[in-house]
Write a protein that binds this DNA or RNA. Structure first.
Length: 414
RNA sequence: GGGGAGAUACCGAAGCGGUCAAACGGGACAGACUGUAAAUCUGUUGGCAUUAGCCUUCGAAGGUUCGAAUCCUUCUCUCCCCA
């Protein structure tokens, strides 16, 4: 995390200073501060809002918190009266951004991209102000590139320049294939900046290279090169790697309130500061207070979870989720809000093999899997802990069935 | 165009004719411990079966053999070196 740099002494206008203070929070790279100041000042003088671009490739069906850093930053620009331009990379999604990959992204077909794009936009608008948002699909101009223009674009960079990149270099050394079209990706993204005449482009820190290409292309097209602003990479739930679907360490913004709360509570304490800076509007004093040795990290985390849930489900849901977590996880109380799981009516009051009951839940990939849970004393039924794969139970209705930390339901009948 | 190397379970990686459902590490899951975590310790980690055991898996398809992840043939994909 980069601490906010002091704004340069050249800043005379207090309104610019104010905008900068907000915009610099949770920013990793800023190319450059001076240019951003100048742009903000120019915008104030002319009354023309800055065009701030953020590109997302609809490569999967849903967004996770990692993606929201850029969206949140974009929202800040919106709040300051600037023009947010969200690029849906329907064309680039089919190329596949090589950034940070250790292998080529699978290329997607048009129908999938299309479906994803719609869903993305929906989710992005939970953070952005929809009515003030300009949404563009880059297929609009990229798919219209003719052969000459395309070759010209490809001539704007060199193989050596591409190979300088960490991700490519790693793949090269490891002997993982790099496909030719992957080299084109940064150029295409840069072309987007030209097409929408971006003043500022946002992206994750691993996108810096791509963002910088945009500057070059704009300059070659007689435009003022965009300011590049990157957000840090949000660490995933494992606390080691960046949040990513493929690492399965993500929190999806369409997950329900309790799930989000549960996951937030399980991040390790060391990640608290970053997450609060990046995912909440807590001011600095608040954050310091929550991180103070006198505060139980659990309570700080609960605040964080509440703030995150509130963004996507509202304040009431956030309070309920926090309460629920305290009851269920912290105090291990069973409560009324546990969901019913319906069993066949014929099973009522019957002496059953616990194994069959577990298989009915659909939580386990195989009987062996369920058997293991029983052997490992992971299964609680009512007030009893079951033990051994031959355990038997009698379902009467209303009992709480809990397996490990993941699953809790209340027994019901059809 | 020429020469070499390789494809093993979720991932990395051993194994090179039987003792292989396949070492080891990571991940994941469970239990103990805790402030929710993390760390640590313990256990589990193809399917079916109460045990014995049976079934399916080692890039794909064929073949050799009593027996193949291990040998042969063809195919697919990848990497490296030289042009």
């Amino acid at each position: 995390m980069t601490a906010p740099e002091p704004t340069s002494s050249a800043t005379k206008d207090p309104r610019v200073a104010e905008q900068l203070a907000l915009l610099q929070r949770g920013v990793h790279d800023l190319i450059s501060l001076g240019e951003l100041e100048a742009s903000l000042l120019r915008s104030l003088k002319t009354g023309k809002p800055l065009r701030v671009k953020l590109g997302v490739d609809p490569t999967s069906a849903s967004l996770h918190l990692g993606f929201t850093l850029g969206l949140r930053k974009l929202r800040q620009f919106q709040d300051l009266g600037h023009q947010a331009v969200l690029i849906i990379g329907d064309a680039t999604a089919m190329v596949g951004d090589p950034t940070g990959r250790n292998k080529a992204r699978p290329r997607l077909d048009a129908a999938t991209v299309d479906a994803n794009a719609r869903h993305y936009l929906d989710q992005a608008c939970r953070i952005l102000q929809r009515d003030k948002l300009e949404v563009r699909h880059n297929g609009e101009w990229l798919k219209a590139l003719d052969f000459n223009r395309f070759i010209e674009l490809a001539s704007r960079s060199t193989v050596a320049r591409m190979l300088e990149r960490d991700d490519f270099q790693k793949r090269w050394k490891e002997g993982t294939p790099i496909q030719l079209h992957e080299f084109l990706y940064p150029l295409l993204q840069g072309q987007d900046s030209v097409a929408v005449e971006a003043d500022v482009e946002l992206g994750g820190r691993d996108q810096l290279f791509n963002l910088l290409v945009g500057r070059d292309l704009q300059q070659q097209n007689g435009q003022v090169p965009q300011v590049c602003m990157t957000t840090p990479l949000l660490l995933g739930l494992d606390g080691v790697r960046k949040m990513s679907k493929s690492h399965d360490n993500h929190i999806g913004i369409d997950e329900n309130a309790d799930e989000i709360m549960l996951k937030v509570m399980r991040i390790n304490d060391g990640m608290l500061r970053d997450w609060m800076i990046l995912l909440t509007r807590f001011d600095v004093t608040r954050i310091e207070q929550l991180l103070d040795a006198g505060t139980n990290p659990r309570d700080a985390k609960l605040e964080l979870g509440r703030a995150i849930v509130a963004d996507y489900h509202g304040a009431d849901a956030a309070d309920a989720a926090a309460e629920g977590w305290l009851r269920r996880v912290s105090r291990k109380e069973t409560d009324e809000s546990v969901q019913d799981l319906v069993f066949p009516a014929a099973w009522k009051d019957q002496d059953m093999a616990a194994l069959d009951v577990l298989m009915h839940t659909g939580w386990f990939a195989s009987k062996g899997d369920a058997r293991r849970q029983l052997e490992q004393k992971a299964v609680n039924f009512g007030t009893k802990r079951l033990s051994g794969h031959q355990a038997r139970v009698v379902l009467r209705g209303g009992e709480i069935l809990r397996v490990g930390r993941q699953h809790t339901v209340k027994v019901a009948f059809s």
